[in-house]
């Protein structure tokens, strides 16, 4: 492996190209410069068709439950369980309109609340976790291994036993029923998952790069800002995507820390469609679940573009 690292480091033409988000980023498409003979081409084509067929079939299996949910969201409440087939007999949009207005506030209210928390959390995690990760990945300091262990330990305790002390703490700070208990911890890098994630990615960046930068007089802040962050786009994108999705879906802490209906978020709102002791609006639940999937899905589509902007496309070859 080490002989590979000593190979050429040049700025190639791809650096001048805009980072691509298409399926086949230019410059990375063809690793084998020689053209294939025709027979192999045909075989490759057949192989590719088979591959796609397999991937599509697999995709259907993956998606079946979601398709069922979409289908059910167009059925009247009473028919969801009586006629559980995939194709609704008649399309009924009332679950969407009813569900949207069923709670004290229109559903958009909860979407906005969730969006605020998600935005704060994403920014917080990106900043605070990457800072901490840089320290663990690149700096030598006393007790590094111990602190690293402490960091990992902090995600090994189930939330159910820390939520009560947390509630006491936040209620002493008068933070209950605000978004602060949900956002401030992210600004303080309490999501150790992402620190560890970024440590792993930072360590994957050749150390020669920052050593060279150090020789050029760059300090750690500059290396962090101008070298590590740009070269870790996949890790940052992963962090952003996951923070988005997990915060968006996080039910328990939002339930506990937000007490007033005007502060409620999407997961709490969704739960209120179903009550195991009384009447449930399954149709509305499915409809609003789909509505609430849209933002996360868009976030994922958007975020995954950045997954391809790794070291491979930023110019180092």
């Amino acid at each position: 492996m080490t002989d590979a690292t000593t190979s050429t480091q040049t700025v190639t033409t791809t650096a001048a190209l805009p980072p691509s988000d298409s399926d086949v980023p230019p410059g990375t498409e063809d690793r084998r410069p020689t053209a294939r003979p025709r027979g192999r081409q045909v075989r490759a084509k057949v192989g590719s068709v088979l591959k796609h067929a397999g991937l599509i079939a697999f995709g259907f299996v993956m998606l079946y439950p979601l398709l069922w949910m979409v289908a059910s969201s167009f059925k009247p409440n009473a028919l969801i369980f009586r006629e559980p087939g995939l194709i609704p007999t008649d399309i009924d949009l009332s679950n969407y309109t009813d569900g949207w207005n069923a709670l004290l506030h229109p559903f958009s209210h909860y979407l906005i609340n969730s969006a605020i928390i998600v935005l704060g959390s994403v920014l917080g995690n990106l900043l605070s976790c990457s800072l901490a990760a840089y320290a663990f990945a690149r700096l030598e300091f006393k007790g590094k291994r111990l602190w690293f262990a402490v960091m990992l330990m902090s995600i090994m305790l189930p939330i159910h036993v820390v939520i009560v002390p947390q509630y006491v703490l936040f209620s002493q700070l008068e933070w209950i029923n605000t978004f602060l208990p949900l956002i401030v911890p992210k600004l303080l890098a309490t999501d150790a998952f992402f620190i560890f994630l970024m440590v792993q990615f930072f360590r994957g960046i050749p150390r020669e790069l920052d050593e060279a930068a150090t020789l050029d007089g760059a300090n750690h802040l500059r290396i962090y800002l101008q070298l590590m962050l740009p070269l870790s786009m996949p890790a940052l994108a992963t962090t952003a995507i996951f923070t988005f999705i997990w915060t968006w879906n996080d039910f328990f802490s939002q339930l506990i820390f937000l007490t007033r209906p005007e502060m409620y978020t999407v997961p709490i709102a969704l739960r209120t469609f179903v009550d195991s002791t009384g009447n449930s609006s399954w149709g509305s639940l499915f409809a609003m679940s789909i509505v609430s999937l849209i933002p996360v899905f868009i976030a994922f589509l958007f975020g995954q573009k950045y997954l391809v902007k790794g070291i491979a496309t930023t110019g180092i070859k």
Partner: peptide, 27 residues
Amino acid sequence: KGMRGLALYRSVYYLPSLLGGSVAIAI
């Protein structure tokens, strides 16, 4: 890399993970 419709496949395969702990999962 190097395949058509990658972004689509990726998204389709990721979709189930978006559901999280939704109560709908049980159904």
